[in-house]
């Protein structure tokens, strides 16, 4: 049975505990879901780390994956989103020969059109940076390709919810309330 697969963005908030990344990725592996991109960094809350993971799956599977991630003791909360529920961005770096920049105006036009910017120029190469959605980053790549690309790298996705409710803050407040109840 082949059900429709959607690109989901999973966000995980965890305590900063050694080995957490492994614990999170194991759940994807066991459920045979390939991770498309993964970004891990400190969140705005001290001691709390944020994972942003994208993966193609059907909703039933991604819901189970998220539940099993959240089951891990050191994971605070995990959620999954479709693209219409989040603002998301990726960043990419393109290294092109400086000669191609100087020889024609193509690269300059591309940089303007795609709202990219030049980070570094030297005699040998030029590094262009662009942030956007995956298809935009890919479009710039394809446009630059004829001029020659020496290196290309793109980041994983980062995302922020469109919702006006801050679910993690609410969760932490609720847990603080429980802690106070217990200590009484």
């Amino acid at each position: 049975m082949d059900t429709e697969k959607t690109l989901y963005t999973v966000t995980v908030y965890s305590e900063n505990q050694v080995g957490l990344l492994n614990q999170v990725t194991i759940v994807f592996t066991r459920r045979q879901v390939n991770i498309e991109s993964l970004t891990v960094s400190r969140s705005a809350i001290p001691g709390v780390h944020k994972f942003t993971i994208t993966a193609y799956a059907d909703e039933d599977t991604i819901r189970k994956v998220v539940n099993q991630i959240e089951k891990r003791v050191d994971v605070l909360k995990a959620w999954y989103y479709t693209d219409d529920e989040i603002i998301f961005q990726e960043v990419a770096l393109y290294k092109v020969p400086t000669d191609s920049l100087l020889d024609t105006s193509t690269i300059e036009e591309m940089v303007r059109r795609f709202n990219a910017r030049i980070l570094e120029v030297n005699r040998t190469y030029t590094v262009i940076e662009m942030s956007g959605h995956q298809d935009e980053i890919q479009a710039l790549y394809e446009n630059l390709e004829p001029t020659g690309i020496l290196q290309f790298v793109r980041s994983g996705r980062i995302a922020i919810t469109k919702s006006t409710v801050e679910r993690l803050s609410d969760f932490l407040a609720e847990m603080e309330r429980r802690k106070i109840c217990i200590s009484r």
Binding site: S14, M175, E176
Partner: peptide
């Protein structure tokens, strides 16, 4: 231990 913030 009586409480862990990340575990309900």
């Amino acid at each position: 231990c009586t409480f862990i913030r990340s575990y309900q």
